[in-house]
Amino acid sequence: MSARENILNRLRNGSASHPAMHRNAAHDACGQISHASNVSITTDRMRQQFIELLRANHAQVMETDDLGLAESVVTCLQELGITQLMGSEEVRFLLGEQGEMPIQWQPWPTKGNDAEKKETLFSRTPAAITTATAGIVETGSLVLIPSATEPRSLSLIPPTHLVIIRERDLYPDLENYIAHSPWGLSMPTNIVLVSGPSKTADIQQTLAYGAHGPSKLVVFLVS
């Protein structure tokens, strides 16, 4: 018999000998974090909490609107001394074609094999910008759903990561977001919650940023 059958048989025998564990799904409801208060808090308070938590986790947050977005991005990059930005065509369009911008727009490397693309991303891409699908207020998290136009590496490999998120996409908590999620049971390839720049406390419990992922995370919260 295969390992699969052996394991499943052992588990089934185990289940059969103890059919009734004294629990059922209804029991789970106890101790649920109260959403009632969260849902009723004003959008303004939600926004405030979201920003505070992100900042506490060492992310930089810029509050802006559609008209001011491009300028905010440019100012931020200038402050960081970055002249080159990778992102999707959609974001480039959103930022107004970059006509006047003193920034070199770097598209995702479509030519070359995977090894060449990796070389570009690891060695020649100082910063990338992506959009966030949602924000989780309770934990100050950005929900990224990478796609063909915004690949997974964009928010991971370049040392600086810029994220655009819209205020209307804030949810009180992860349970609430999952309950509203449009993907049902067929999940996207990858969903990642990002709550700050990459960090570690593995050496003597001392917090250091930029462990493996981006060392700088800048969030543009668009009202």
Binding site: L53, N57, I136, E138, T139, G140, S141, M187, N190, I191, V192, L193, V194, S195, G196, P197, S198, K199, G213
Partner: peptide, 8 residues
């Protein structure tokens, strides 16, 4: 409250 990355 949550780790920096939660990857699904």
């Amino acid at each position: 409250k949550i780790t920096t990355y939660f990857n699904m």
